[in-house]
Design a protein around this nucleic acid. Structure first.
Lengths: 192, 192
DNA sequence: CGTATTTCTTAACTTAAGTGAACGAGTTAC
DNA sequence: GTAACTCGTTCACTTAAGTTAAGAAATACG
């Protein structure tokens, strides 16, 4: 399981055996059950997550309704805005499936970064890449209709549509569950 | 004008006079006229921008129609995804107003970063902050209606509504210009 | 095993955004 | 100075999403 993490890191920097051992012996690996809440609204936290296996989601509760805005699956990392801004969290993070992930504290990361400049560079490169990727996702969202967004998702992350409940997918697409049902029926009709 | 840049940087790291001089004597400051295109679709580029005065926008051309997805004004920085991904640009960047900005090459930045680790850290911190901010903007966009988005923009960036043409604002809000006109009329009616 | 509960779908109706066209005001070009 | 163009608005009409409600299917749980 740790190899998944090392494979991921190796795309950015090459680790020595010493560095790998430091990571492997650190106590950051967690197994969590489906439905577990990792972070609650209003809570302060310094934890970042990296998914080794499974799926987590971020969601807001607005007028008693859950609004899911993001899913994180294998090889994806999440540092909640509250960790960066040092403010109480605006949203919840919870597990869509049984999930194996790493949980790392920002103080710990700061210590590692100052000890190994290599990690500092890796963090910058990763942040820049994520920023560019997210910018493109946002642009795509803005410039397309709900139906196009669904079709795009079908292309780019077909697994999500299978492993995630429809009503969570709906708010991820910026619409209501009923609209998603209807939209899917419409697409099926067009095919015939 | 250079002081704006130094003020901005000082929020992240403290520069020595030597470092300031290195920047001040570098040839990165540009004045560009309203309407100037800084980056074209399909073009490769290594340039990042930082706005000292004025406003620029990013836009896609889809079916012959411009879709504006972002505006950058005073004290904001843009590194296009094409610079990060080393691919041809998907969009255009052009000036909404007469603008003063810095243009910096990614090779140049890499050289500075390896010479001054201070900058490396600044870049990581800035990227992380931008990522968190953009994530929140995206979430807000997903979870609100066009009308709410417009009202939010009125709160968070009232200047934009004044300085930017309506049809560019409309696609920024994810709607058509006609819908924006109508929506504004609706809001005015509600007030009375 | 059967009863809740959650999840998904369908339907009827309301509301708002998309579309195409027209108009006037302001700007630019010649 | 006038023609051409851009820009914002309005209107009538179409299309799709929001809302409310109801019911079927799957899942959880005692």
């Amino acid at each position: 399981m740790k190899d998944i993490l090392f494979d991921f890191i190796s795309k950015y920097v090459l680790l020595t055996d010493e560095e790998k051992n430091a990571i492997a012996s650190s106590d950051i690996f967690r197994s969590v059950k489906k439905g577990t809440t990792l972070l609650k609204e209003g809570q302060k936290s310094k934890d970042s997550y990296f998914i080794l296996k499974g799926c987590i989601r971020t969601y807001y509760v607005m007028d008693g309704e859950e609004k899911t805005t993001a899913f994180y699956t294998e090889m994806e990392a999440l540092t909640p805005p509250c960790v960066i801004n040092k403010t109480p969290s605006d949203y919840f993070v919870s597990c869509v499936e049984d999930t194996v992930l790493t949980v790392s504290d920002s103080d710990m990361e700061a210590a590692i970064n100052s000890k190994f400049p290599k990690f500092e560079i890796m963090c910058r490169v990763m942040s820049e890449e994520l920023l560019a990727k997210q910018r493109m996702d946002f642009d795509e969202f803005k410039t397309s209709s709900p139906e196009q967004r669904y079709l795009n998702l079908l292309q780019s992350r077909p697994d999500l549509i299978q492993r995630v409940p429809q009503h969570q997918l709906a708010s991820y697409l910026g619409i209501k569950p009923q609209s998603l049902s209807r939209l899917r029926a419409r697409i099926l009709e067009k095919k015939n």
